[in-house]
Simulated assay, not measured.
Amino acid sequence: MALHNRISAAELKVKLAAETFRRVTVSFYQYAKIEDPQAFRDDLYLKLDELKVFGRIYVASEGINSQISIPEHHFEEFRNRLYAYPFLTGIRLNIAVDDDGKSFWVLKIKVREKIVADGIQDPTFSMENKGKYLKAKEFNELTEDPNTIVVDMRNHYEYEVGHFQNAIEVPSDTFREQLPMAVDMLKENKDANIVMYCTGGIRCEKASAYMLHHGFKNVFHLEGGIIEYTNKAKEQGLALKFKGKNFVFDDRLGERITDEIISNCHQCGKPCDTHTNCKNDGCHLLFIQCEECAAKYDGCCSEECQSVYHLAPEVQQEMRKGTEKGVMVFNKAKERLRPRINEKEE
């Protein structure tokens, strides 16, 4: 059996649209020692491909990071196959909050140096000493303490559309930049309760270990991140302290947590929290665009991109030759459009 997809993207998307069964979007991660990441990757690919699981999974010697879409009728078998790996037995599966089942259309499993790009070069750093987990109820209680500082360990464009009340933003485009920035920003608060959170838990767990490594005393991280918090808060009837939308790294680009819209269209300034990618394939800027501006600019980020978008496909392709392939993100905080290579962190 092939260990990689060999069907075109267009065909895969048609097949996804034609499916008559429901899919469930799930994320999970685990920091663990994997002796042979490539062998594990190949074995996992065979097991998941057979169940028609789609999604993006990163495997490294430090563990696994996964965001996937599972046919609902295969969910139990998927869990059985996953839990058959000793280091994944009983692992928490974060079920998406606002899910249309169309988050992914192909299965990609890649071996990487790390499961989340952190930029840490210090050989003495260890994930064994990490912050204390906080469940939803504990998070709500601790964040009422005036000696508590809540830190958002996500990228600026994630924070922009939704975040916890009174959370501090570490204004950066990448996690690797945020870690030293968080240490510097909070260096005068080493005795405070530092509560860190992210989308599904993987970044804030590593961040909590990094903070402890740099001398902070009382460090906590939200178990399962925003996704698990929201599900548990709703189940337990707790007050939702998160406001707005939770950005996610799949085709949905966000899941609605509360009705508040706390961000604005990057083109006209109207309240809006809908992320999109510029329709000009030579740009693909990730930005926030309202319905009116989407119609006005044909889904493009500017009149310049709109004019390119309407050129013949072969002309557009010629214009793209020699350009660096990356992902553009609109960084309003820095008042410019900044290109970066996108790290699918959660």
Results as ranks from 00 to 15, higher is better:
34 I>Y: 03
78 F>L: 05
180 P>M: 00
181 M>L: 14
160 E>L: 12
127 M>T: 03
190 K>R: 13
343 E>P: 08
286 L>E: 14
258 T>H: 04
336 R>E: 13
206 K>Y: 07
339 P>M: 07
150 V>C: 10
124 T>L: 13
132 K>H: 12
59 V>E: 00
217 K>F: 04
187 K>E: 11
188 E>P: 06
64 I>D: 01
123 P>M: 00
206 K>G: 08
28 F>Q: 05
323 T>S: 13
226 I>R: 05
85 Y>D: 11
213 H>W: 09
172 S>R: 12
333 A>D: 13
312 A>W: 03
309 Y>M: 12
177 E>L: 10
341 I>F: 07
110 K>I: 06
284 H>W: 07
325 K>A: 13
168 I>T: 13
242 F>I: 08
312 A>Q: 05
152 D>P: 02
291 E>G: 06
41 R>Q: 15
183 V>Y: 06
33 K>T: 13
68 I>W: 08
37 P>W: 02
114 K>G: 04
24 V>S: 11
338 R>T: 14
104 F>Q: 06
273 D>H: 07
170 V>P: 03
184 D>W: 07
310 H>C: 11
268 C>W: 03
266 H>S: 09
182 A>Q: 03
302 S>Q: 05
113 E>V: 09
248 V>Q: 01
25 T>M: 12
118 D>N: 06
148 T>G: 09
132 K>L: 12
2 A>R: 13
23 R>Y: 10
342 N>F: 15
193 N>C: 02
320 R>L: 12
328 M>Q: 14
6 R>T: 12
338 R>N: 12
154 R>A: 04
10 A>K: 13
197 Y>R: 02
105 W>A: 04
202 I>W: 02
219 V>T: 05
105 W>F: 15
284 H>V: 09
252 R>Y: 05
129 N>E: 12
106 V>L: 08
253 L>T: 06
223 E>Y: 15
66 S>P: 02
174 T>M: 08
240 L>N: 06
79 R>P: 09
162 G>V: 04
52 K>G: 08
248 V>G: 04
133 Y>Q: 01
157 Y>N: 10
107 L>R: 04
85 Y>T: 09
182 A>T: 06
303 E>T: 08
219 V>D: 01
72 E>G: 03
196 M>I: 05
174 T>V: 10
72 E>N: 11
301 C>W: 00
256 R>Q: 12
190 K>P: 12
337 L>M: 13
